[in-house]
Write a protein that binds this DNA or RNA. Structure first.
Lengths: 176, 176
DNA sequence: CAAAATAACTTTAAGCTTGAAGTTTTTTGG
DNA sequence: CCAAAAAACTTCAAGCTTAAAGTTATTTTG
C-alpha cells in the first residue's frame, strides 16, 4: 500500500485517467470522478470505523444508533413513517429495525388512538440511557478522526460541501 | 422539507447543538459532528442515485460494478484476495460476488496452477463489454450530479478532502 | 352511504456484508 | 521428512436494505 490512493468502490484511480476511455462518453469527466472517489473514501473510512466501534464497544449497529438518535429529541415519540422519511430509508426497513429494538427493550411502540394505522415509537428510559452512552462515545470518535484538521480547513469544507450538496440536489430535482 | 438540513444517519442537526449534551463529553465536538453529517449526506445522496440507476438501467448493483471495475484494468486477471484488499471488503463477501458474476457469465475463475489455494478471476469479453457500457453511463451520472460545482470549488474540495483523509488515516493508525 | 382511492404500515424475496468457523494447500521449524 | 503454523479461500449465521406485494384503516367520491 502506498497509502495514498483512492482506489476503491468501482473506479480505480488509473481508470479515470486511462486509455480505456469509453467511446460514448466524449466529455472529460475525470475531475468529477476523482472528486467523487475521494469523497467516498473519506466517508467509508469513517463509517467503517464507527460501525466497528459500535459493535465492539456497545454490541450495537449503526442503523440502531441512527434510529435511536432520531427518537432522542422526540420526548413524545414519533410516527414510524416520519422516522422513515428523516432517515431516508424504506418503511419496510424501519419496520424491521423497530421490531428488534422493541424486542431488546430500547424502544416502545403504540398504535395511535386517533388513527389505528399509525405506529408511534419512542425511546424507553433504558433505551435513552443506552443511547446517551453511545452518543457520547460517538462524538469522541468523530472528534478524534477529524481532529487533525485545522479549524480553517473545517470551515472551508463545510462551505464547499454545502455547495456540492446544492449541485447534487439540483441535479436530482431536474433529472428525477 | 426545508431542503437544507443534514438530518439523518443518527445525528439530527439539532442534537449536536441541543441541551441534551452528555455529561461525559465535556469537549464541544459540534463542529466535527456537523462536518461528518454533511459529508455523509453528500455521499449518501450520490450513492443512492447511482445504485438506483445501475438497477433500473442495467439491472445491476454497485458491488458488481465495483468488482468489475477492479478487474477492468487487469487483463490477466486478479487474485481474489487482492480484489478483496483493494475493495476493502471481506474475502467472504468477494467470494459470494464472484460466485454470482461467474454464474451470469461476466467473469471467469481459474485456480492458479502454481498454488491451488489461489483463485484467479478475470472479466470475460461479455463482462468487459457490459462494464464499459455501465462505466460510461456512470461517468455521465457523476458529471451531472457534480456539474453545478465551479471548477474552483472542485479544486478546493479535492484539496480539503485530502487533508481530511490525512486526519482520518492518522487517527486510525494511532488508535488502531 | 358504498365503492374506490389513498395511507400507513408489514411481509417477502433477493442481495449485500461481516465476523467467525471450517477446509484445503503451502510453508516453516525441528 | 513431519507436525505445526500460516495462507487463501469458502461456508454460515445474523443483520441490513430495498422493491414489490399484501393487509388493514381512513378518506374521497359519486
Amino acid at each position: 500500500m502506498t497509502g495514498d490512493e483512492d482506489d476503491r468502490k468501482g473506479i480505480a484511480a488509473e481508470w479515470v485517467d486511462g486509455e480505456t476511455k469509453v467511446l460514448e462518453a466524449p466529455g472529460d469527466h475525470g475531475a468529477e470522478l476523482r472528486l467523487w472517489l475521494r469523497l467516498l473514501t473519506c466517508t467509508t473510512l469513517v463509517e467503517t470505523e464507527v460501525r466497528r466501534r459500535l459493535r465492539e464497544e456497545f454490541d450495537s449497529t449503526l442503523p440502531r444508533f441512527d434510529l435511536m438518535a432520531q427518537l432522542e429529541r422526540a420526548r413524545d415519540g414519533m410516527v414510524l413513517g416520519e422516522v422513515s422519511k428523516r432517515m431516508m430509508v424504506s418503511p419496510g426497513n424501519i419496520s424491521v429495525l423497530v421490531e428488534r429494538l422493541a424486542e431488546s427493550g430500547h424502544i416502545s411502540r403504540t398504535t395511535s388512538p386517533t388513527d389505528r394505522r399509525v405506529q408511534i415509537i419512542a425511546l424507553t428510559p433504558f433505551g435513552r440511557a443506552e443511547f446517551e452512552k453511545m452518543a457520547a462515545a460517538h462524538a469522541d470518535w468523530i472528534a478524534d478522526l477529524f481532529g487533525r484538521l485545522e479549524a480553517a480547513d473545517s470551515t472551508v469544507l463545510m462551505d464547499e460541501l454545502a455547495r456540492l450538496k446544492g449541485s447534487i440536489v439540483a441535479s436530482l430535482a431536474r433529472g428525477g
